[in-house]
């Protein structure tokens, strides 16, 4: 029998090649496409796509509107998720894990089906076709709420009770204890929740398409349109770069970029 000689380190070679070929190169291709244009088969370097985006009123207003929708839906998610996570994490219920399960369980069910179900409900109560923006916001909150609840719950549950008791002993009323101790200590959860909700709210066009009857174009949809409808991949790539820059700047402001997305995705619940 021949023994296969390999070192454990070499196991990362296929994975490394996979990342290089299917993650790094494609991202570089976006950069390449964004700063080039094609005419008569000749590819030339250009800033035209960049200038075009920032001189086009339609594109700028899409960016602004998409950004606004993302901010509002992230804020709504936070406002709804925080009390729920707080109640679940601070309650002395023995079954609180099961209760948490009920809140985050939908995130493992196909989101297109859930959004279509929501569409039927909005249709039934007469909102579909009349309240496009409201429906889109409801949809974003509906879809992304679990991603906000989970990281908030995780940080709030770990919170050391002795801090809260010490603050109360030192004369802080309930509101002060919350504002000065609980909330600041839960910031890591808030940040990873915001990270999880903000980006898809700017890009997940299945939600806005389905619930606005294809009347609202968010930034992700604009990229899709440049690829599938207008067949201008160079402009589509440029919008992707701009999207990434906007998200990068937003994360910089909120202090995001923690590798807690996997946690928020519920990996630890399996």
């Amino acid at each position: 029998m021949t023994r296969i000689h390999f070192s454990r380190k070499q196991l990362c070679i296929p994975y490394g090649l996979f990342l290089a070929l299917f993650v790094v190169i494609p991202m570089l291709l976006i950069l390449f496409y964004a700063f080039t244009e094609e005419s008569d088969g000749a590819i030339t370097f250009t800033f035209a796509n960049f200038l075009n985006f920032f001189t086009s009123k339609a594109k700028l207003s899409t960016l602004l509107m998409s950004f606004t929708i993302a901010i509002i839906s992230t804020a709504l998610c936070l406002i709804i998720a925080y009390p729920v996570a707080y109640i679940l994490a601070r309650s002395r219920l023995k079954k609180r894990h099961v209760l948490l399960m009920l809140f985050v369980l939908p995130m493992w069910i196909n989101f297109v089906l859930r959004i279509t179900a929501l569409r039927e409900l909005l249709d039934l109560i007469g909102l579909l076709g009349t309240q496009n923006y409201l429906n889109t916001l409801i949809g974003m909150v509906y879809d992304f709420l679990p991603f906000m609840i989970l990281p908030l719950y995780t940080t709030l549950e770990k919170l050391d009770n002795s801090y809260l008791e010490a603050a109360a002993d030192l004369g802080g009323n309930q509101f002060t204890v919350f504002a000065k101790i609980t909330f600041p200590l839960s910031m890591p959860g808030v940040i990873s929740g915001v990270t999880m909700v903000f980006m898809p709210s700017m890009t997940n066009y299945v939600v806005s398409d389905t619930l606005s009857n294809f009347n609202i174009t968010i930034l992700g949809k604009l990229i899709d349109e440049y690829f599938t409808t207008y067949n201008n991949w160079h402009m589509g790539s440029m919008i992707s770069i701009i999207l990434l820059v906007v998200i990068f700047l937003t994360m910089l402001v909120t202090g995001g970029f923690r590798d807690s997305k996997q946690e928020a995705r519920g990996a630890n619940l399996w």
Partner: peptide
């Protein structure tokens, strides 16, 4: 969407 178009380009 960025992951998707990046792969489409490749």
């Amino acid at each position: 969407i960025v992951t998707a178009i990046a792969l489409a380009l490749l």
